[in-house]
Amino acid sequence: MALTTQHFFEARPESISQARSFTSEALTYWGLPDRVEDIRLCVSELATNAVVHGTVPGHGFLVKLDAQEETVRMEVHDSHRQHPKARQAADTDTSGRGLILVAALADGWGVQDRTPSGKIVWCCFKPAGGMTVLLTPSTPDLRLLVSLAAWTWADTRPDGHEAAHILITRAPALTGSGTAETAEAGVQRLSASLGGLAGAREVVPELERCLQIFGDQVLLHVPGVSRRLRLPTRRPWTELVARNAEAVPLLGLDPLPQTADAVRIDAYLDAMLASDRLIFGRAQLR
């Protein structure tokens, strides 16, 4: 069954946060929480473009959401006919990355003319519950990706230089017979897709160029999977990743809830190191 809702906003800065709230409230009401944060980020970028570039005097913009069995489609309608183009912003630019971020987070996006005037910028997202994408055996299952929990922090290496760390584990939400073995195999496939992580007693390998920075956002790209894993970040950590052009991902083979605090994370890391169930790599910026 298809679900549809839309809302018109005036072309003013405060409408951008209102569009984000409208989007998250609608998706939560429909029971589709899987991609809320990704869709909120995209509607924020497209609404900003509409307010700054896409409206003529006296006009606003429209946000429309359509949810079907396999796809959530988000549209932003505005009154300007000129189509936006994704471009690679310079490091010193404070804006210009919006459509690059949309392309990274969404499973598809595009622009079409609107009758009688204006345009529609749309993007589509595939919720985990309705996913029908077929993956090759070597790629991690998309349901595994949406069940992952992640933490980031900075630490000092033995040589005195700071390193950016990423801990990725499974959230303990999977249940059923054989689940633990299947999920652990999935994490190992995730490791293989990234280029092969190694144990603490081995040489830490360099992985594929799988990190992308968009403003304050850092995304982990998994080869063979359309979705990116958005990492929890703070500005100093993101700046450290940019300076080093790399980060150190750690994959934990045992589950850990996303709500874990620093004390529990430290205990988890100690236990995983002692049991050789933590694997490491060096992920490069793309």
Rank of each mutant, 00 (worst) to 15 (best):
P116K: 07
T169D: 03
E184K: 11
E184W: 00
I166P: 00
T156S: 06
R73L: 09
G186F: 06
G178H: 07
A180Y: 02
A171Q: 14
L142D: 05
G108N: 08
T139H: 10
L174V: 15
P127S: 04
T156H: 03
A103G: 10
I120G: 01
P172T: 08
S177D: 14
V133I: 14
H165K: 07
E75L: 11
S79P: 05
K119M: 13
L134T: 13
A164H: 04
V146T: 15
Q82G: 08
T115C: 02
G130M: 08
S95V: 03
V111I: 12
P116H: 05
E69A: 15
L105P: 03
A183Q: 11
L167E: 01
E184S: 02
G118H: 01
T152D: 03
T179Q: 14
R143W: 06
L142S: 05
R157F: 09
I168F: 02
R114S: 12
G130N: 07
L148E: 05
A150S: 15
G110E: 08
I100C: 11
R97F: 13
A183I: 07
L105M: 05
E75K: 05
V146R: 09
H77Y: 13
V121F: 06
E69G: 04
L101Q: 01
E162M: 09
H165V: 13
L145Q: 11
A128T: 13
H80V: 13
W109V: 00
L135K: 05
T136W: 02
G178N: 10
G186Q: 14
H80C: 10
L142P: 02
A173K: 10
K85G: 00
Q112M: 11
R170Q: 15
R87W: 04
G108T: 02
T175K: 12
S95A: 12
L148Y: 06
P158T: 11
S117T: 12
A171D: 15
C124K: 09
A150G: 09
I168E: 01
A150R: 08
T136H: 09
R114D: 12
D141S: 14
H161Q: 15
S177N: 11
C123P: 00
V72L: 09
P172H: 07
A171M: 10
C124Q: 12
A128S: 13
P140E: 05
G110L: 04
L174S: 11
L142W: 02
H165E: 07
G186T: 04
T179F: 13
F125M: 06
L105N: 02
G118R: 01
W109Y: 15
E69W: 04
G96R: 02
A180F: 06
T169E: 06
T179N: 11
T182S: 12
P137Y: 04
C124R: 10
D93E: 15
P127H: 03
P172E: 06
L174M: 12
L101E: 01
S79T: 14
C123S: 14
S138G: 15
K85I: 05
E162Q: 15
S177Q: 14
G96V: 03
T175F: 12
